[in-house]
Design a protein around this nucleic acid. Structure first.
Lengths: 335, 335
DNA sequence: AATAAAAATGTAAACGTTTACATTTTTATT
DNA sequence: AATAAAAATGTAAACGTTTACATTTTTATT
């Protein structure tokens, strides 16, 4: 037998009352509560979450969809989510999209079959078709986006002000006396990278410095090629004295490329990344960057979702302000 | 209404038959199968996994317990697990222990309440009491350990040969002409770190070189202090020419400390880490290390678990062989 | 065409909870 | 002490599937 039924039989009390005890209903006398709890301990009772979920319609599971789990940024976010969500007695199911729309849709579908109470997700770089997502928004399943959102109205989201982050990074280079700055930009299909580019351009124009935007798309597949492109750029624009890279990993590659070219950082060129990855403090020189408070972003998203689970609130988008992290790669040795 | 019942009504077929269609039972004629599938599509039917789980006792969920998700090694493992497990139609629930036994037990309990089909876990550094784990092993829930195992007999595990990894790393230093080597060891309560230490000692003794073992426990809380200890060690043993650190993060810190002390790597001292973290190729000089094939470890663990789900197999422990990754930090400039 | 075997389908109970509603017991009020 | 109100408990159905067993239909065999 096992389960609530056995406890009911043991204590001579009804199923309903036993259930009430485990759901902390106020409507049960201390005496019977104690009796039930004792019996539960005796048989090492473990409630069956699935059964409760089926009957109540609440699974106490939250689905999390990220592009990749083994990525410093997203794993920090998952850490933040896990913290608040598990404190509230929820479990998290994690799916990866590997930046593929097809996998994303499959993951969403799978989460719905599991009757998750809510969904936290960051859309893949590839995602253009929002019909599946729109269907979820239209349904009752609460969903909160973090970092990357679909371009749809009336959604819950926790985002980073990427424009501002890039603006701050660029201003920092200018503060450090850079007068001719280069931006290595990310995939223009991804909106957060486009915003960073815009922030860069805006700050450069505001302060009337020379600027340039470029891509180095082959850094992983063919670093040799990028080394040559970079060499060309620097040859064409020999007075470049500051570089803002769209991400920290790219920045570290740049650091190594510059080293290979015998260009000293920060003496000849100052360099700043974006993301404040875990390794950025460890390089030589250490890398200045823009912190995006990934763990906090996870926490806030989770809180927004939990709030939505209690009562359907108006869709809200929270925008976090990135912070400048000054390290050696942008140090002004003359100041 | 919704669900299987509605489809049954629409198609004029019984509940059982509809169920058979979705479970790919061979015992259903192509004609009715088609009819049912059509109806399912028409009402956008989504099976309720919870209900199926309750009735069948199979949740199609696998629990994963790791010390921290935002850790390069464990997130790689999760990536590996997710790949094989989701290909087989399972979902994963992830819990963090933050290296606390208490949280570990809570996570295990929570997974049992969810009726997970199996568990994949790496025990926390703190865990000494295995009663909860033993209870699970005794029950029917299959469990596989990865990387860190409890010292219990007859368990399923996928492990790294840490002794061998350390042995290889040490031999590599000796190959590169180091004659006086230092090991910066990890927390002696953690068995994998102890094995690394033993491997180091064994290789050093085998090749009859001078060696030394030390801890630098404050590197995160108080790097100044460790800088001084390191200075002391090197002063006392001025002919140290090779260092094997128990982990890559520690190794990178050492790299920076050595740089501060104006000791050139690899010219004066050669340095090798352990783990081949994602950032180890990015440092200057790049860090030699021991690769532990984290993603593969995840895949193998998941496969072992899936195998156990099909039919209870004899407990097996698979031991992976680590690989040497040669980079600049151990380059012999004379060779 | 009759019969046996195989394939397809159906019936109904069960998985372990929650919960609306009903009933009983206790407490407060006069 | 009688009555009303509040607190505690109980009854029974339901959540949406799966599955053992029974029955019907189809196919193969003579």
């Amino acid at each position: 037998m096992g389960g609530i039924k056995e406890i009911a039989k043991m204590t001579g009390v009804s199923l309903a009352t036993v259930s009430r005890v485990f759901n902390n209903s106020a409507l049960v006398s201390p005496k019977t509560r104690e009796k039930v709890l004792k019996a539960a301990k005796d048989i090492d009772y473990r409630p069956n979450v699935m059964a409760a979920a089926l009957r109540s319609g609440k699974s106490k599971i939250i689905g999390v969809i990220v592009p990749e789990v083994n990525n410093s940024f997203f794993s920090d976010i998952i850490n933040g989510i896990e913290g608040v969500v598990s404190d509230s007695g929820f479990n998290i199911i994690i799916s990866q999209t590997h930046e593929k729309q097809e996998r994303e849709n499959a993951a969403l579908n799978s989460l719905l079959e599991l009757n998750v109470d809510g969904i936290l997700m960051s859309i893949s770089k590839e995602t253009k078709d929002y019909t599946q997502i729109q269907k979820i928004i239209d349904s009752k399943t609460p969903i909160v986006f973090f970092d990357r959102r679909p371009t749809l109205d009336a959604i819950n989201a926790v985002l980073l002000n990427n424009y501002l982050g890039a603006y701050i990074a660029t201003e920092h280079l200018i503060d450090m006396d850079c007068e001719n700055i280069l931006h290595i930009a990310g995939n223009p299909d991804v909106s957060i990278f486009e915003e960073r580019k815009k922030g860069f351009v805006a700050a450069a124009q505001k302060h009337r410095v020379q600027y340039l935007v470029n891509h180095l798309p082959n850094i992983k597949s063919n670093p040799e090629e990028d080394l040559n492109s970079l060499k060309d750029i620097l040859k064409k624009h020999p007075n470049i004295d500051g570089i803002f890279a769209y991400g920290d990993e790219m920045a570290i590659h740049l650091l190594n490329l510059l080293n290979t070219l015998k260009i000293e950082v920060p003496k000849q060129v100052k360099l700043i990344g974006f993301g404040n990855a875990n390794f950025s403090a460890l390089t030589q020189p250490s890398l200045s960057s823009i912190d995006q408070e990934s763990s906090l972003m996870g926490e806030l998203s989770a809180n927004l979702l939990l709030q939505n689970l209690k009562r359907k609130t108006k869709p809200t988008a929270k925008v976090l302000s990135p912070k400048l992290i000054r390290r050696e790669s942008t140090k002004n040795l003359d100041q």
